[in-house]
Design a protein around this nucleic acid. Structure first.
Lengths: 214, 214
DNA sequence: GGCAATTCTAGACCGATCGTCTATAAAATC
DNA sequence: GATTTTATAGACGATCGGTCTAGAATTGCC
């Protein structure tokens, strides 16, 4: 959605030009802004200005700010799930290396955005007390999903002999995401990637690696 | 400050009654509310209602919402530093046990508040992008302070023979706080203490414990 | 191809919030 | 006890977020 295109009243002509679908553009901008500033601190107007769309359009596509937020969460979850799979199922790397690759990529991502953007799910989680209740379950479900994907990767490491046979991969995956969110938060605050690396290091130290096999 | 006490215009009589100092009461209420809902989502009016104080008083004591926020951070930092010392310097427990005691206490605290309150510093950290810049340095300083206190405790563990002599206590302390904030966030989201325990467990697994001594 | 129905935009509108201001009154000072 | 200082009371305006109604272009139908 190009802000240079002056809008006229009424239904716009079919988009011949390269304009994205308005709804999609709004959600996309919402992901960016909410990842940076959270839900409560973000005004609809800000999203609208970024996309160059008037307020009326917004409430045509979404029932409310809350409804918009829910869709933004879904979009982010979908985006992040794809990204996770790209790393955690990468067949050319051994399982534990995939986790490092994910962390490295996240670091690059944060650096690219000047450490202003964090994790949408973490942001909104922090705001829980001020958020509509339905958000809570949605966010929890997202964490469970990520945890499952991480657990699967760790299980591959276990069956592959990287982790000890008695490793509790579910618990380890939970540990990872719990701490990772903290690391992202801290990296945002310090505007530096060190916390991400520090946490990743600590996580790997905590793994029950298989000893040199007998 | 009791909301049942009807206020009259003008300067109030010296507080014979149990009324707290108004300024102090505002800061105290601010800590409670900001710990729950963060800075942006909280209106001044809400704090005023909680304390039963009119707006005029607020802007007599504080230059702005931002100035108020800064004092709230300081008050929370002081409160938390005292709490930390109470646990991390407890002479009747071995150093590593003190950390567990701290975690247990934090769990009780979150449970007592129905998992609605998190960590003020973590909350505001998450909001960074929408917060006045001076907050950032203040929050960073608080983390550094906590980290130093934790590192000292870990060093006691090292010299006491609980940790290996080559343990990097500063890095371990950093790892702790990075992940701990994540755990608090997650506990708030799940409304359950499990994340706190899971992280604490993982943290201890990551520690380079001294082997059975030769 | 004309007419209703649908789709989407424009922006007015209301309420809430932030920060200020004036009025008022008690205490402190001398 | 007169004056200055401290502190509360609450109205006020500017701004902004969220909702809603009106209106215009397009689509579908026959």
């Amino acid at each position: 959605m190009d802000s240079s295109s002056a809008r006229k009243r009424g239904r716009p002509p079919r988009a011949f030009d390269g304009q994205l679908d308005t709804r999609q553009a709004l959600v996309r901008a919402g992901v960016a802004v909410l990842t940076e500033k959270g839900f409560a601190a973000t005004g609809i107007d800000e999203v609208l200005r970024a996309v160059g769309v008037p307020k009326g359009s917004f409430y045509h596509y979404f029932a409310s700010k809350e409804g918009f937020g829910a869709e933004v969460i879904d979009a982010y979850a979908a985006y992040f799930a794809r990204k996770l799979d790209r790393f955690l199922r990468d067949p050319v790397l051994p399982p534990l290396e995939r986790i490092r690759a994910f962390a490295d990529d996240a670091e690059r991502g944060m650096r690219r955005h000047g450490f202003r953007r964090g994790c949408l799910v973490g942001n909104l989680g922090q705001e829980m007390a001020a958020l509509p209740e339905p958000f809570r379950h949605r966010l929890l479900a997202v964490f469970e999903d990520w945890q499952a994907r991480m657990a699967r990767c760790l299980e591959e490491a276990r069956t592959g002999g990287g982790l000890r046979p008695d490793a509790d991969c579910g618990a380890l995956a939970a540990f990872f995401w719990i701490g990772w969110e903290g690391a992202v938060l801290r990296a945002k605050l310090e505007q530096d990637a060190a916390p991400l690396r520090r946490f990743t290091e600590g996580f790997f130290r905590s793994l029950p690696l298989a000893g040199p096999h007998a």
